[in-house]
Nucleic acid binder design. Sequence first.
DNA 1: TTGTACGCGTTATCAG
DNA 2: CTGATAACGCGTACAA
Lengths: 343, 343
Amino acid sequence: MDRPRKPTLDTVASAVGVSRATVSNAYNRPDQLSAALRERILETAASIGYAGPDPVARSLATRHSAAVGIMLGQPLCAAFSDPAVSLVLDGLASTVDGHDHCLVLMPGGTEGGPRPSTVARAQADVVVAYSLPDDAPALDVVRARGLPLVVIDQPVLPDTARVEVDDVGGARMAAAHLWELGHRRFGVLTFGTRAGFLSGREGAFRVTRDRLTGYRDVVGHAPVWECAGSNRSMGRSGARELLSLTPRPTALLCASDELALGALQAVRDLGLRVPADVSVMGFDDVPEAEHAEPPLTTVRQPLAEKGRRAGELALRLLDGGRPGEPTRLPVSLVERASTARLT
Amino acid sequence: MDRPRKPTLDTVASAVGVSRATVSNAYNRPDQLSAALRERILETAASIGYAGPDPVARSLATRHSAAVGIMLGQPLCAAFSDPAVSLVLDGLASTVDGHDHCLVLMPGGTEGGPRPSTVARAQADVVVAYSLPDDAPALDVVRARGLPLVVIDQPVLPDTARVEVDDVGGARMAAAHLWELGHRRFGVLTFGTRAGFLSGREGAFRVTRDRLTGYRDVVGHAPVWECAGSNRSMGRSGARELLSLTPRPTALLCASDELALGALQAVRDLGLRVPADVSVMGFDDVPEAEHAEPPLTTVRQPLAEKGRRAGELALRLLDGGRPGEPTRLPVSLVERASTARLT
DNA sequence: TTGTACGCGTTATCAG
DNA sequence: CTGATAACGCGTACAA
């Protein structure tokens, strides 16, 4: 059989003997026609196999698609496997839940952030950018398309809704804690877009630049290894680099828990122990931090809350609201067992 | 200022002095026009503030949207907070990654599965349904819209791509393990759409019906409490019901790890101990199971692999492939510390 | 390169 | 009230 063209509003309209507009009303404005006619239309539609107005055509006409877009700096799977990202998205999703919107996850390309072509094709009424590099081209596309934008963490853009945490303050707390424990030789493990030792304060992420600033405020100069991303295996190899330095650092300041969890492994790899030989400090306080071996001392940031706030901002923009001032959430130090006094 | 209409292909075309088709070609078929003209068009577009072809209009014309839809039986946030769901989605996402498609998450309504209106409006080229109830209306909508469909776990639909595991076999393993440990008084904790004791083999989920069958094959009759969903708090309260029966069960067969984790808590609530007083058996083997207190004995199913397979099927259907036979993945028993010989 | 016929609905505005 | 007419939303793709 040759595939019969899919029925459209017109198909139904002519089958019933009314105009297309009336069929449209039967679906969208029941009060605009008699119940009897509406019934007849719906029945005919069902018998023809008409599934209701095409969502794309409808979006084209109405100019909205009932979807919240999310731009990630990482592959799609990170949304479900990176604990910090999932926590933020969990919060975001819980806010969006009940508003009958879909969540459109855009995969991050290689350069941090979705490819411009991906963003150009994504169908959403508002976009939430999760921690993209400062120069992410994806952001320009969102701007050009005139879509409302909410930024989580970074980059800092003028007149843009944003939610962030006190990264400098958090980093200071982390460093101060180790300093007070007597540590004087530090290694810093941070994340960016490429791997290697860092000399200046470069780096594509405001978040890590701020954390670096906070660390340095307290400990002064220290070797910094930047990982190409934030996951355990990168943290593990980066920590190995830091721990091979002479003199060896007695404490590792990690810009994320994932990196710190990798660092824990690296210390073991070298036959050393945490915290007896090396103290390890994280950042984020993901659930895994508490169950790590040993439990990780870290800087807690309210990840789920960050997502919720971002979701609220997105919904507000959707309603035509203004971006408003950036929301800044507090951080706090969580002392567990991966840091100890220098003996 | 009164908002100027957003520029369109036509705006650019007349600004450059060419036809709309040519501008379209400049974006989609660079080889169809001279490099110089293309350059001029793109420049003009940029100066006008044209962001490129509207994605919705393009989708309307091309009939596809470069998106994979996912229908959940739960709220959106479950995608990121329920460990079993995230693992499956992680696998699914890792397969879709690199194909430049977005993931469209549709929120589940109250009756298990997204509301028909949600599905009717979602824009995707293929839809993956994750463990929806047999009668989920969302599935009819997908059918009516003629979208390719991949089902994970259930329901069983004719001529539909599906990936599942051996639920009956897994449940038998679980029950047999406890039986061999000497247990004879069992309580079964399962999930469905409403809470209460179950008498027959009813239940909206093939998965839980199969697991129930497997349990009963081994242990015969046993009281069954059905939770309204699968999470810890429901498991906790359901387990309390089972543990208040006289005589009290010595072993709890749980249809998911989340329920089992809740059951662990319930046992503690009653001042009893696992496994000394009550053995608890899970199903799924989520990462949390290993770190539970005590570590959970459970039936392992390859969750990430299930997602990956579903992703592959989705991509195949996207290419016009046939559904093929259902994929069935194996399960295995993982013995840990939440079950013990009856003393 | 371009003309032009679709793709499929929505939403005033208008007539009965 | 009920329902119809017609303009509009923005591109794509094929024939000329």
